[in-house]
Amino acid sequence: MVKNQSISLKNLSVKYPGSTAPQLKQMTAQADSGQIIGIVGNSRSGKTTLCQVLSGVIPTIISAKVSGTYTLNGHSPVDDWPAYNQLTGVVLQNPAGQLSGLADTVADEIAFDLINQGIQEAVITKRVNQAAMQMGLTAQLTQHPESLSGGQLQRLAIASAIATDPQILILDDPTSEMDPVGRQQFFNWLAGVKATTFIVSNEIDDLCEIADLIWVLQDGHLVAQGTPHQVFNHLSANWQLPAPTSFQLAQKMNWRLPTSDFPVNFQELREAIHATN
């Protein structure tokens, strides 16, 4: 298989000043642009640090010692950060901390990134409405951001990130406060997104449905990378990760794919049942 490896990390290491051990250790990974990369791992495994490196927050805003090389869609987060930053949409862990702090309405909040880019007001209105619609916030556009629930705030943060139509999306646990229905809607939406997407999540089932690649982090090491199928068919107990429900079910029922692997999402599960019977 010939791969256009436009996302490339080589020997990436990150260490905060004052900490004894590095947070990321010698990470080397590849992906194609336009892919969805699910980042999984236990707490303290380095997922958030990786998101901060990919978005350029480290070392531009938070100082840390970074070594190794990394480029995304052919751009480096370090060389010209302001330019790189315009290509990315980032959602951090705590949705309330991402509000601009000076918006009266949800619409104003979504418009913030666009105003900063000096975009025409007519275009802004259109983009705001589009982004709000995609995140199911149209009814809330005139509400005060404060009046939103945690899950709605997360959708607001995502809407703000996608309003600028970024090439690269970096999402750090964006559904932690959403209810099950909201989470399902979000993952359905994400499946159709064109941008290169990095998403940290504990929702293994959902990731296996939509991700092209899974990166497994453990204690700062990238211990596995590959398709969800590859990664979860070689799951190690050390990673402290659950297998997706389809996998668990197939394993119990001994429904194997023709390759004798187990399925990791619903489509594969159906194939496996078909192959077994």
Binding site: T245, S246, Q248, L249, K252, M253, F266, L269, R270, I273
Partner: peptide
């Protein structure tokens, strides 16, 4: 998952299904 496979009985877990 079971429902998509055409089985609408209630299952509480993979273990239960098995």
């Amino acid at each position: 998952i079971a429902e998509k496979l055409g089985d609408s009985r209630p299952y509480l877990s993979v273990e239960d299904y098995y």
